[in-house]
Each structure stands twice: as C-alpha cells, then as structure tokens.
Simulated scan of single mutants.
Amino acid sequence: MKKIFLLAGLIIFSVLGASAQYKLGVGVRLNYGYGLSVKYNMTQKKSVEGILYSRWRGINITGLYQIHAPAFQTAGWRWYYGIGGHVGVWGDGARYGNPWFDNYNSNTVIGADGVLGLEYTFKEIPLNLSLDWKPAINLIGYQGLWLDDVAFTARFAIK
C-alpha cells in the first residue's frame, strides 16, 4: 500500500511540476552562506526573485527584477540579467569575523544589486538549476562593493 501511495505521489509531483518553462521556483541558494530563493516568472522574458540568506551570522534580504533570453538555442537554457536591492543586518562583527564590521554593535546595510546568470530547467522533472554572479554595492551603512557573490541555486519548478 505504501508503494502505491509513493508511486501516485511521484506521478502527481512530476505532472504538476515538470515543465521547461515554470511559473514559480522555490529552492536553496548556495554561495559563501546559504539561503532561500523564490523566483516568479511573470512572462517568458521577465521574472522577480526574492533571496533570503545568511552570512557571517547575519541575514540579508534581496529582491531582483530579471530579464531572460534563450541560451545556446536549446530548450530549457536561459540567460538572465537584472537589478534590485538588498537590506542586511549583522551583529557583533568583531566576534563573528565579519570583515567589514570590527565593532561589537549591530550593523545594517542597504544597497543596490545586479545579477548575471544562466539557468536550466529540466523538462522531465520539476527542477531548475542556476549559476549566477550577483555584485552589490552598499549605499547606507558600510559603503563598499561586494563582488564575490557567485551562487548555485536549485529550485523546485512549479508550472
């Protein structure tokens, strides 16, 4: 009986999720820290993505607007680029090794982000994989550039 339920669940999961073009993707983003990515495709060429991730025992929230284009003339592959912004909060920089905050206070930054990436969405299974570079500049709080944010993201792709 368990096998029947498992098989039925896998079939439903595959039918609902499998698509070369997905509407909503939810998954994990892995870079120097770890986080959550939620991406909503408004059209085939436009999407918005929200990223919540942790680094140096702090938290960063990013929102991005992205433009997509086909890549390699192959189904499932897309380039994307975009802009957005972020808000980050870190506490106790000296104790946790944050290279920008060497004090024992809470620190907040607000800034602008860019993104350039490549993604692939499997047709057979509900999975979207992406690799991107997301440079950022802090405008309020610590003022400086973050050029090291290269991340791999795996998302469950929902039609």
Rank of each mutant, 00 (worst) to 15 (best):
K45N: 15
G93F: 09
G50S: 08
R95Q: 11
N31L: 13
T62A: 14
A71G: 12
V38A: 15
I51V: 10
V28D: 09
D113V: 05
Q44G: 15
V87L: 03
D92N: 12
G91Q: 13
N60H: 01
G114E: 07
E49S: 08
G97V: 01
G33F: 08
K45E: 15
Y34M: 05
T62M: 15
A94V: 09
W100E: 14
Q66M: 15
G63V: 08
I67R: 12
Y53R: 02
N105I: 11
D113M: 01
Y34A: 11
W56T: 03
V109G: 14
I67W: 04
G82R: 03
G25F: 02
V89E: 15
K46M: 09
E119K: 03
K46H: 10
V26R: 00
W79P: 06
I110D: 08
A20I: 00
R57D: 15
G97L: 08
N41A: 04
G35E: 06
A94E: 11
L52M: 06
I83K: 12
Y104G: 14
G27I: 00
K46N: 00
F101C: 02
L116Y: 02
G35M: 12
A75I: 06
R29I: 13
D102F: 04
A69I: 04
A69G: 14
R29T: 01
G50H: 09
S106R: 09
W56P: 09
G97S: 04
S106F: 08
V87F: 10
A112C: 00
G114P: 03
A94I: 05
F101Q: 04
T108D: 13
K45H: 15
F72K: 04
G82Q: 03
S47E: 06
N103K: 04
I51K: 09
Y40A: 10
G27D: 12
F72T: 02
Y81L: 06
G117Q: 01
T43V: 06
A71P: 08
L52S: 04
Y65T: 09
W79N: 03
K45Y: 14
G111D: 03
G91P: 05
T62V: 11
I110A: 14
F72N: 03
V28I: 05
T43A: 11
M42D: 12
R55T: 09
V26A: 14
Y32S: 14
Y80M: 12
G117M: 05
W100H: 08
Y96N: 06
G35Q: 01
G58C: 06
L36S: 08
Y104Q: 09
V28E: 07
H86M: 11
L36M: 04
W100D: 14
G50T: 03
L64H: 12
L118Y: 01
F72A: 10
G50P: 07
A71D: 13
